[in-house]
Write a protein that binds this DNA or RNA. Structure first.
Lengths: 150, 150
DNA sequence: ACCATACTTATGGTATATCATGGTAATTTA
DNA sequence: TAAATTACCATGATATACCATAAGTATGGT
């Protein structure tokens, strides 16, 4: 998965990249999006992945714990299912767009089983941050000889 | 899933979000609401889920504990079935509305198999609290391997 | 290697269906 | 019988599904 740039129209509609649609179709699941906790971007994944996460939380045998309660609240309270129409588009809500500061252009970034949607400006900054971070850790990586990420 | 904001009229009527109705219809069960034990909000779920919860409490090993007795009394004494009319609305009682401090706007918050109803002001505060709390505990969550960014 | 053609994908526009909500009638309860 | 509660109707707003065009990409032939 690479990064794809698509237009967002006045109604919040945006084409889900064809590659993404193919994967969703193959998995037979549906797309779920929510505000990232740590970054000004939208995060997305398939519904079954989210359900697995919820099940894990429920199974972590402290049924009445506040933390668990907070987690499910956060995940399910924010997340929303998105179905794409016959042309492959989803409509992002005002809440999500505002959080990611997206106006008319969306940058899709693949992240393994998840993906993120950024505004071009924020993504440029984030990419820069990541590069700097990797460079800073490079000596450590070299010393460890784990060098896949260099 | 998701949060939905609906109006509450002078009689306490409020539309149950369409997604919720769809689920209730699919499960063939009915909605039950009660005052949250820990927060100024209304909690709701399907009737069969509440019955399952009751069974769990009975099966737990401290059968004669006063706390559990109190707990079941509180929840089941308070819980009430709500049927929605042909337009999909329920009428919330004065007791519930007062407890949640709701006057003319209700915020529905999805919680997996349950949901909550908040006043806009209280939900804003609660959401803020949850996000801060979860961020604080993030390292713990990562150690548990419940996913990187959630 | 270049051009023509077919196909997939993205995007603007429009019609349609669904949903929330104010209002009213019917039914129940005190 | 009055008050209150419940069920139904009507409308406006919103979101959803569909159609059409354009742009970009791959494919096959000369």
């Amino acid at each position: 998965m690479d990064t794809v740039i698509n237009k967002v129209d006045s109604k919040g509609r945006v084409s889900l990249p064809a590659d993404y649609r193919a994967i969703v179709k193959e998995l037979g699941s549906e797309i779920v999006c929510y505000r990232s906790l740590v970054s000004p971007c939208i995060e997305g994944c398939t519904e079954d992945l989210l359900e697995k996460l919820a099940a894990e939380i429920e199974d972590s045998n402290d049924f009445f714990s506040q933390t668990q309660d907070d987690l499910t609240n956060l995940i399910f309270g924010d997340a929303k299912r998105f179905t794409f129409d016959s042309t492959g588009r989803i409509v992002l809500s005002e809440k999500l767009l505002k959080h990611a500061q997206i106006k008319d252009t969306a940058v899709f970034v693949g992240k393994g089983r998840k993906f993120q949607i950024w505004s071009p400006e924020n993504w440029a900054k984030e990419e820069e941050r990541i590069r700097a971070e990797v460079l800073k850790k490079r000596p450590v990586l070299n010393a460890r000889k784990t060098g896949e990420n260099a």
